[in-house]
Design a protein around this nucleic acid. Structure first.
Lengths: 347, 347
DNA sequence: GTGAAAGCGCTAACAT
DNA sequence: ATGTTAGCGCTTTCAC
């Protein structure tokens, strides 16, 4: 079809073909400016540009208008199974609203994260959804400093300086703990996530305060620390835990991946889940139902997370400073009971 | 820090601050043109632009140069667990080479796919990696017609019209079949993937010809068809199969997700895997080791897939038409034996 | 080795 | 309702 040099068709070309001015073409093609143009011309232009295969160059538009209709999203790692669902959700939404989503990955590396955020901003994204924040995070500071619309998802920074939407870790941990407690568990440990990430810390706090609410003394609610939300870290931490507190009957892990690591360590020690030790996760990663030991966990309202995040970001982009800023949305997780928890042996 | 209006810093600003011309700044900052500038000025410019927080506007550069240093990648769906590893691989590579990867999703919808590819091209990506091709695919035609560098990964079109890198489906299916046959299976069925997608069809062909090689008559190697690479489709197809061929002892599914669906249907019928029926998958999706019935499957050389795809794409972008075009790279999968296969009952 | 000027493709004043 | 002009930020001739 386009046998010739595949030279880009421009407004100018369309204008020339119609013997009108480029501005008119531009206007005729822009929904917000169409009303300035006669219906006849609009039709003509639409027909001709379709014929010629004209597509506007978003670069040029962006350069001119200052807005790219692009939003950036930063996640730690696409291999972590908790992120694809969230990305999917947000991608769908932004797309529907006429925005293009650009992904960036921190690979759990703070320096890389900063580089990437700079790239995102250099590319003039209209706003950023950040799902990878540390409690102190230069990445966030940079966005704020640059005045870029920003929404934090799931992980937040210590000082509330930007819009954020998160899942109620307190409630999630409470439900998990309550579930275990009602099964009869009285010695429940926590394998905590990295303390420099808000969700790691807040789940840890939640665990401690929940234990207190149930009158479980600190000595019967030991906590070990991981340095990453991974299976490997979970396994290492669980080994430690088994050594120091062989009497525990249940473990609340900071998330699903860590929980898997815990299970690995428990089985390595010749024990069984849930017969000897019950284990819970957090996040409800995909395909858990198929697992050998389907995890009892807490599921995130991914759709709402995405919806709220996008909604807030757009309101920032559109400068609707209607409401009090910064805003904070707290979403409720849901308990999902599966087979990794059961009554304690001694009960 | 940047307390003022967060106005973008431009070459002009840097130039003004140094009382030199924008061109010089541009040259000093461009590795390819630095040699045209005195070392002293280079240093000055570098220092100053760092100080002022200058970052080039890629839009402007792209507009001027015609190249965006961006490559687009199209996948069906990020929720399909086979894609994140591939995306990750390719993202890492392109990033290392100074390119930014932009993802687009077909959501298994041909029309959406075409829209998305148009968007990608409108945004001036320098090249496209397509992992979502149908055997006849307007998406591919459009790229070709536009003269966009293009590499097909894993799924290809019928007429070999562009570079492609794929996994040897024949070999994969052969290994799976051989494994089952050596366990003693003689009635082996195939749950085939969509026939309008190359991998679905080629695995089907491979199954048939392998059965022939092992002297298994067609009647003992029945094939049922799915209309999608999903658990649901697999389940439906397997139900059908159980009804029509209750005597089969093993199933070669077109991929892991479909295999899961098969297992679901088998268990629904009151049978067990692998005791009553063995099942194999394809792709080796993440976390299979944790599954209740860890799938025997075939793993893809993701790293090589990504590496080859990027390598070929870049050679197109750089117009190194050194070698014969189009090129085709065939990569070898690896058999991964797990617990979903065993000796047949009657053996 | 450096500067001036033009232009990538688009759109928003400012005309008319 | 439409055309003219200028300019977004960059790079690249073409001068000097």
């Amino acid at each position: 079809m386009n046998n010739d040099k595949n030279k880009r068709i421009t407004v100018k070309d369309v204008a020339a073909a119609l013997d009108i001015s480029p501005s008119t073409v531009s206007r005729a093609l822009s929904p917000e400016k169409q009303h300035l143009v006669s219906d006849r011309v609009i039709e003509l232009v639409e027909k001709k540009s379709r014929e010629m295969g004209y597509t506007a160059n978003p670069m040029a538009t962006a350069l001119k208008r200052g807005a790219t209709k692009t939003i950036g999203m930063m996640i730690p790692d696409i291999l972590n199974p908790m992120f694809p669902p969230l990305v999917h959700e947000i991608q769908q939404l932004t797309n529907r609203l006429g925005y293009t989503l650009t992904l960036a990955y921190t690979e759990n590396n703070q320096e890389l994260a900063l580089e990437e955020i700079k790239r995102l901003i250099a590319r003039n994204v209209d706003g950023i959804i950040l799902a990878s924040a540390f409690r102190k995070d230069p990445t966030v500071d940079y966005c704020l400093d640059q005045g870029k619309p920003l929404v934090l998802v799931n992980r937040v920074i210590d000082k509330q300086a930007s819009d954020q939407v998160l899942v109620d870790d307190r409630e999630g941990i409470y439900m998990l703990f309550e579930h275990l407690h009602s099964l009869g568990h009285r010695k429940i440990a926590h394998v905590a996530g990295p303390s420099d990430i808000s969700s790691g810390l807040s789940r840890r706090h939640a665990f401690l305060s929940t234990a207190d609410m149930f009158d479980v003394p600190t000595s019967d609610a030991p906590v070990v620390q991981t340095d990453a939300f991974t299976e490997v870290s979970g396994k290492k931490a669980m080994r430690e835990l088994l050594e120091q507190h062989p009497d525990i009957t249940a473990v609340v892990a900071t998330n699903d991946l860590v929980a898997l690591g815990c299970i690995a360590a428990i089985e390595e020690a010749g024990l069984q889940v849930p017969k000897d030790i019950s284990v819970t996760g957090f996040n409800d990663m995909p395909y858990l139902d198929w697992f050998r030991i389907p995890l009892t966990t807490v599921s995130l309202p991914q759709a709402q997370l995405g919806d709220q995040a996008v909604r807030m970001l757009l309101s920032q982009i559109r400068k609707e400073s209607d409401s009090s800023f910064p805003r904070k949305v707290l979403l409720q997780p849901k308990l999902v009971v599966r087979k990794s928890t059961g009554a304690p042996k001694t009960a």
